[in-house]
Structure formats: C-alpha cells, structure tokens
C-alpha cells in the first residue's frame, strides 16, 4: 500500500513532463489547489464544526495580497503573512464568541454563512480599490520576463504545478498531524459530549479555536495561490456563499473523514463543473449552483462518508467478509 502511494505520487509529479497540453495541466493544477483548500475545510468540518463561511478566508487571502501589490507595492511574499494575520484575526473574531458561548451545529453554520457574505459585500463596496464585482488583476510583472519571483508571478504552468503540488502535500501532512493529535480525539469527544469533555479538563474554546485557525489559515493560503496563479480574482470566485458551499460540497462529496477524501472531492467537483460548462455552457444562469445543491443533499442522505469514504468502507467489508462457497 505504501509503495503504491509513492508510485502514484511519482507518476503525478512526472505527468506534466510527458508533454501534456496546457489545458489538462491547468485542470490538474486547479484540482490540486482546490484539493488543498477542501482539505483545509475538512480539518475542522470533520470535527463537527461545519463552516459555510470559508469563502471569507479565501477572499481575505486573495484580496489582501493583490491589494497590497497593486496599491502599496508590497511583494506577495510579504503580503502572505499580512493575509495570514488578517485571516487569523477574522477567524478569532468569529470563532471565539461562537465557541465561548457554545454556538454549535446549525447555528454555527449560520453565523459563518453570514461571514462569507460580509467579506464579499465589503470587497464589492470598496470598488474604487478592488474593482468591485468586475474583479481585479494583479499588476503584471511579466511584461519583460516570463517570471518574477518577487511578484510571485510565473507564466510557466509547470512552476505552478510543482508549487501547488508541494502545498497540497503539505496540506495532507497537516491533515495527518491533526488526525493523530490528542486534539483530534478531544474534539471528537467534545462534539459527542461537550459538558463531559469540559469536566475532564478540555478547554473546549481553546481546542476548537486552534483547529479553526489551522483550517482558516490553510484556506487563506489557497486564496493567495489562486489569485497569483490565475492573475485575476473577482468577489464571486473567492468569497460569498457560492464558493463557500462549493468547499462544503467538495469535502463532503469526496469524504471528509479520510485523508484523500477532499482531494477526490476536488477532482469530482472540477470534472462536474467543466462537464457542465462544456455541455450546457453559461446560458442557464445558476444551473451549476442548483445542481451542486441537489447533489449535496443526495450525498448527505445516501453517501454521508463521501465517495472515497464509501469506497474504502466497501473494500474493507469485502476483504473481511468470509468467502461464500458457490452453491
């Protein structure tokens, strides 16, 4: 199993060198990027903290860096820690009161839902700086060269592929670290019996806040990378309800309780989105969101462990089941 994992990774890393076209490579990069973001969401989502507001962190990541670069000429490398700090502050602002006053379940989801909309509306309201709903392009540093390290701009998709591959691997590593930590067990305990958890010395607020921070900061990094890779962001694509729900959908569809679940979810969502785009186009406004919503409901009812989670479960069941002799 371990061997298969390394071979798979080597194949993935070598794939672009085989000379695939730009479009397939672009799709792979987006898959890995969203896989990282969904993994970040699942870090807290799987522990009973379902956030419908992660678009806020994505938007803060993307816009802080682009605004810093366009208006203050701050390199994205400096913009990144600024964006992380802003995200941490925002996550604290929303998380602390929620956890302190035991806002859980649906109520927590509703609070976070508002958060992502607030960020989207702020971006639109500051249209003089942000370009409003038309979006914004980071000032190009690629006029004379094909890449600029200080501006974090690379015209080569190959560079982005390897950068984002590393980030995705780091995301899986963080997921594993959280999974094996005492905090994960503690948070599962908290999501099952909150008072009992407090009585054995678990600081519910602090533990929840810690995982929320990890999750929010990962999402923020995803936003930064998205903006720098696409070299264009608009409020709809990085904040607001739409993208927030897409994260929830991706993580749940793929399976948020297994490490590669969100990644499978990202592949699935992207194929679905591209498939819809190619077959139906953009003619029917809102159709994609409707289909996502419908499928999310179906997944939650029929496949709550997601595609990968259900597949693993079926495999284990078959392996464990005694062989029935043919009659």
């Amino acid at each position: 199993m371990n061997k298969a994992r390394w071979i798979g990774l080597a194949l993935l890393a070598a794939a672009p060198l085989a000379g695939m076209g730009d479009y397939p490579l672009h799709l792979i990069i987006l898959c890995l990027l969203w896989a990282f973001v969904y993994t970040g969401w699942a870090v807290m989502g799987r522990l009973g903290m379902v956030s419908l507001g992660h678009g806020a962190f994505l938007g803060v990541g993307a816009y802080v860096v682009v605004m810093g670069w366009n208006h203050f000429h701050i390199s994205p490398w400096l913009g990144l820690p600024l964006a992380l700090a802003a995200t941490a502050a925002l996550a604290f602002l929303i998380g602390y009161p929620c956890f302190r006053f035991k806002i859980v379940g649906h109520y927590f989801a509703l609070v976070t839902l508002a958060l992502s909309e607030v960020v989207r509306l702020i971006i639109i309201a500051l249209r003089d700086y942000t370009g409003g709903s038309l979006g914004v392009t980071p000032k190009t540093a690629l006029a004379k060269a094909s890449w600029s390290l200080s501006a974090m701009q690379f015209s080569s998709k190959l560079v982005w592929f390897y950068v984002i591959l590393m980030v995705w691997l780091a995301g899986l590593w963080i997921w594993t670290r959280v999974d094996r930590s005492m905090s994960r067990l503690a948070l599962e305990a908290i999501s099952q019996e909150e008072d009992a958890a407090a009585s054995i010395g678990m600081s519910v607020t602090r533990l929840k806040l810690g995982v929320t921070m990890v999750s929010a900061l990962m999402t923020c990094v995803g936003g930064v990378l998205y903006a720098q890779y696409q070299l264009y962001v608009n409020p709809e694509s990085v904040s607001g309800i739409g993208i927030s729900l897409q994260m929830v959908f991706g993580a749940i569809a793929g399976g948020m309780f297994v490490r590669l679940g969100p990644t499978v979810g990202a592949v699935f969502t992207l194929l679905l989105a591209e498939g819809l785009r190619l077959t139906i186009g953009h003619d029917i406004h809102g159709l994609d969101a409707t289909i996502y919503g419908l499928m999310l409901v179906l997944f939650i009812i029929f496949m709550p462990k997601g595609i990968l989670g259900a597949a693993i479960e079926a495999y284990e069941k078959r392996r464990r089941a005694p062989r029935v002799a043919p009659a």
Partner: peptide, 16 residues
C-alpha cells in the same frame, strides 16, 4: 461517555 470513541480512547481522554 464519548460514544463513538473506544473504551481505551475514553480512558485516554480522562487523562487529557
């Protein structure tokens, strides 16, 4: 108890 955790995990949590 934490119903979905195992007995040993429950005990482990007691020594959190």
């Amino acid at each position: 108890l934490f119903p979905k955790l195992t007995v040993e995990e429950n005990l482990k949590m007691g020594g959190f």
